[in-house]
Design a protein around this nucleic acid. Structure first.
Length: 806
RNA sequence: GCCGCUGUGGCGGAAUUGGCAGACGCACUUGACUCAAAAUCAAGCGGUUAACAGCCAUGCCGGUUCGAGUCCGGCCAGCGGCACCA
């Protein structure tokens, strides 16, 4: 029968902690802010995969707590968004109601982890007192010119008559009804995140984040250096027009044999000559009906000749102007010069349509034959390039922008892949955008004192069919007076995306009840920024980039004095079901933590969540493994019970284990190798059990040290043992133990003796033995195998002896 | 296609700057306790071998080194991200 009654013990200490809070800000302690990515409170509840990240961050938080810090470890809810809205459409239950029910359930389940969460700090993005400030930030961005309106195409399902998010488009079709998705131009609110592109890029250097995430953000921002070059249109279809292209390879200008415009380019239609007009217009129309996804899936290049020509400014040659949808209107200038000899896509296009190909770079300076093309490296000698012949292309690549600038036909430029952020949704369940459209004053912000602009109740959550949000159907809400001139005006009916609240919620946790400011500046200075952010890697770009953008903006308007929100980031791996299949209700492979907590206890599940594998990697869940950590906890507890009433004096061996334990656990914990921390506990516990067998027990100080180290991982067990050893205050006030390097050292060590790199014997030597002594012992141990004669002797103290024989 | 990560027993995984490959655990086998089972405790557990010695073993091929899971070069497989970015 198990001696450790986890249910009773865990309940006892949970009540104890409730009455004796362990994490208190006395004003003197150093702060540590450890944050989980807040969850979307879904109706299906928590599974063992959710636990993992929360256990990791809680272990880290409790570690900081024992080290004497005041830990801010909050939790909240990211509760706007599609699932709640779709549920409302189906059931006609207001999202407010379903969301609050889900939160209640989620919170109950979350409490089983018994993390250090400070529930007084709880935030909820759908609470008007919270989204007042989400709206306030928008107002400030509008005032600074960072929020603007623009016609922008969205994914549109002609059958559902609704806009779709990218993730709702599957293989170019609507996820729900299977209809081919098209595009529809709608007026959208945009946020000018591109204004921060350089800072978002450069400040990545300041961050202690996984390199992978930094790299993903760098690529997402996609900074490139190049030149804009003007090509004059020749002929009389469009006299006096010029086309500006962006290129990163101005060195290949002599090789440009055609140009291509995006179908959406303003000149695309105009450039069509009489005989080409029909084909051009058809191509442009077809492209406009294709979804972005479709357009990208086309393998074969398509295109149409406009019938017009432009003049290559470097050599005065006329080159044909084509239209093709492989050129994107929102990158660069929406037009490119094409150098088929040195670009894969241009090459494919030229081959298909029989356009001349002129090589201008050669690795050896010789003429390039067709079989060597396309040659896409910017390395080699310029050929067929007039004055530029003989130059090194990588050098020229840097000079060329200045040359075109001097010629007056272009300029040096920088481009980004990063685009401005489409910030409006034609949906109900989101923050209303606090803008009023006045016929006289234009766009006017809702006055600050009228915030929050609350989301009104509606009868119907269905999309309107016109692409407008359901809010547009509420006349009494839409019609209002202009705050500036008093004229009849209309409210904006778009709402904000789910990202809006999650882009700044971490600031609110330090001052969640403030109705005068987003966050009190003094509190912000004291508690922010976040020291450690724990969450899934799926947010590597969007959420983490948006949060950085928001933080920089709030820094610029003086709300906070730092400009990066998350100093350190840790991405935990996912927990999957059997055979690596993602846990989901539909697959029926979801493992609920509830039964495991009941049968094994919170502590055992916490340990097992870590023991399944390296925290940064994905892991497969296997219920059976939890028996191992459960047995460990019971054995440790039994050892403590057996020892507590005996007055065991610490032997040298016990002290050795104690100091090694502290040294190893601390090192592994600092390295975030949490799975090996757990195996370390087991290993040292086994060592203590062996010693206890000989000595009748283990000294109290060693067991107490063990308990303190264990406390971040298995807080209940640690507290129980701590009190069993006669302590009356909490184990979390014990302070992190220190170790003595000397005491952790063994007197003698086992040294492998190799011959030609193969271990042939193991000798035991004094730790401080002299080289000669060790070598002598080693030779003696392998006497019979070294008769051929030793060529070389290698001795690495503490590691190995290797004897090289003939 | 490009970038990144990962390949170690039946399974999850350990292994400082290159230094006893398989820690710790799961599963399994045997034994003790028990009328019996569970629980617990003890022993074993990569392959080959009757056994020891030996030999073979960290996805594959080669290299550097006294010594390679670890470093270098070339492949293969799986996972993730990006994907007409001019």
């Amino acid at each position: 029968m198990a001696v450790y009654n986890h249910t009773a013990v865990e309940k006892k200490w949970q009540e104890f902690w409730k009455e004796n809070p362990v994490n208190v800000d006395d004003g003197k302690k150093e702060k540590y802010y450890c944050l989980d990515m807040f969850p979307y409170p879904s109706g299906s509840g928590l599974h063992v995969g959710h636990w993992r990240g929360y256990v990791i961050s809680d272990v880290w938080s409790r570690y900081q707590l024992i080290k004497g810090k005041y830990v801010i470890h909050p939790m909240g809810w990211d509760a706007f968004g599609l699932p709640a809205e779709n549920y409302a459409i189906k059931t006609h239950i207001h999202p407010k109601i379903s969301v609050s029910q889900n939160i209640k359930n989620f919170k109950e389940q979350l409490k089983q982890i018994n993390a250090l969460y400070d529930w007084d700090r709880e935030v909820n993005t759908t609470d008007p007192a919270f989204y007042k400030w989400t709206q306030w930030i928008f107002v400030k961005m509008f005032e600074k010119g960072l929020a603007y309106e623009k016609e922008f195409p969205i994914n549109w399902c002609p059958s559902c008559k609704t806009g779709l998010a990218n993730e709702e488009v599957v293989n170019g079709c609507c996820e729900r009804c299977g209809t081919q998705v098209t595009k529809k131009n709608l007026r959208q609110w945009m946020l000018k995140i591109t204004a921060y592109a350089d800072r978002l890029l450069n400040d990545l250097d300041k961050l202690d984040w996984p390199e992978k995430v930094k790299k993903m953000q760098t690529e997402w921002i996609g900074k490139s250096y190049g030149a804009e070059v003007d090509f004059k249109v020749s002929g009389d279809v469009c006299p006096d027009e010029k086309i500006t292209v962006y290129t990163t390879r101005p060195d290949t200008l002599y090789g440009a044999t055609f140009m291509v415009l995006a179908p959406e380019h303003p000149l695309a239609k105009k450039l069509a000559s009489e005989e080409n007009r029909e084909a051009v217009e058809k191509y442009i129309f077809d492209a406009s009906m294709k979804s972005n996804v479709d357009r990208m899936q086309d393998k074969e290049k398509t295109g149409v000749f406009t019938g017009s020509y432009a003049v290559n400014p470097i050599n005065g040659k006329e080159i044909p102007i084509w239209i093709s949808d492989y050129v994107l209107i929102d990158y660069g200038t929406g037009a490119i010069m094409c150098v088929p000899a040195h670009d894969d896509r241009d090459y494919a296009f030229a081959k298909k349509f029989g356009i001349p190909i002129i090589p201008v770079i050669s690795p050896d300076g010789e003429e390039m034959t067709d079989d060597k093309l396309p040659y896409t490296e910017a390395k080699g000698i310029m050929i067929n390039s007039g004055d530029w012949n003989g130059k090194e292309s990588s050098e020229l690549k840097k000079e060329a922008p200045h040359i075109v600038e001097e010629m007056g036909v272009g300029k040096k430029t920088v481009n980004y892949k990063l685009r401005d952020w489409v910030f409006s949704r034609q949906r109900y369940w989101g923050e209303p955008i606090p803008i009023i459209h006045c016929p006289h004053c234009g766009n006017v912000t809702v006055p600050e004192e009228e915030l929050p602009l609350e989301l009104p109740d509606v009868e119907n959550y269905e999309p309107t069919g016109t692409g407008e949000s359901p809010l547009a159907a509420i006349d009494s809400w839409v019609n209002c007076k202009c705050p500036k001139c008093g004229a009849d005006a209309k409210r904006e009916t778009n709402t904000m995306p789910q990202w809006a609240g999650s882009s700044w919620y971490f600031l609110r946790y330090v001052d969640p009840h403030n109705d005068k400011a987003l966050v009190d500046r003094e509190k912000a200075d004291k508690y922010l920024p976040v020291d450690m952010y724990v969450g899934g890697v799926e947010h590597a770009v969007l959420h983490l980039l948006y949060s950085r953008f928001y933080t920089k903006f709030l820094h610029d308007i003086g709300v906070v004095d730092f400009d990066e929100p998350f100093t350190k980031l840790f991405n935990q791996g996912m927990i999957n079901g059997k055979n690596g299949i993602k846990m989901s209700k539909s697959k029926g492979n979801v493992v609920s933590p509830d039964d495991l907590v009941r049968d094994y206890g919170c502590d055992a599940l916490r340990l097992y969540e870590l023991f399944v594998g390296p925290p940064e990697l994905d892991a497969e869940w296997d219920d059976r493994g939890i028996d191992g950590v459960y047995r460990f906890l019971n054995r440790f507890y039994k050892l403590c019970l057996d020892s507590k009433d005996k007055d065991i004096k610490a032997t040298k061996e016990m002290l050795g284990v104690r100091h090694k334990l502290v040294r190893d656990i601390e090192k592994r914990l600092e390295a975030f190798s949490l799975n090996t921390v757990v195996s370390g506990f087991m290993e040292y516990n086994n060592a203590l059990l062996d010693i206890a067998k000989k000595e009748g027990g283990i000294d109290k100080d060693t067991l107490k040290t063990f308990a303190v180290l264990l406390a971040p991982f298995a807080p209940h067990m640690a507290e129980e043992v701590w009190h069993d050893m006669g302590e009356s205050s909490t184990v979390f006030s014990a302070g992190w133990p220190e170790y003595d390097e000397e005491a952790a050292k063994d007197d003698s060590i086992k040294l492998p003796v190799q011959i030609n790199g193969k271990t042939r014997a193991v000798i035991e030597v004094q730790a401080d033995a002299a080289k000669e002594t060790v070598l002598e012992m080693a030779k003696k141990a392998v006497e019979d195998k070294i008769s051929a004669g030793i060529v070389k002797e290698i001795y690495v103290p503490g590691k190995i002896v290797n004897l090289v024989v003939k």
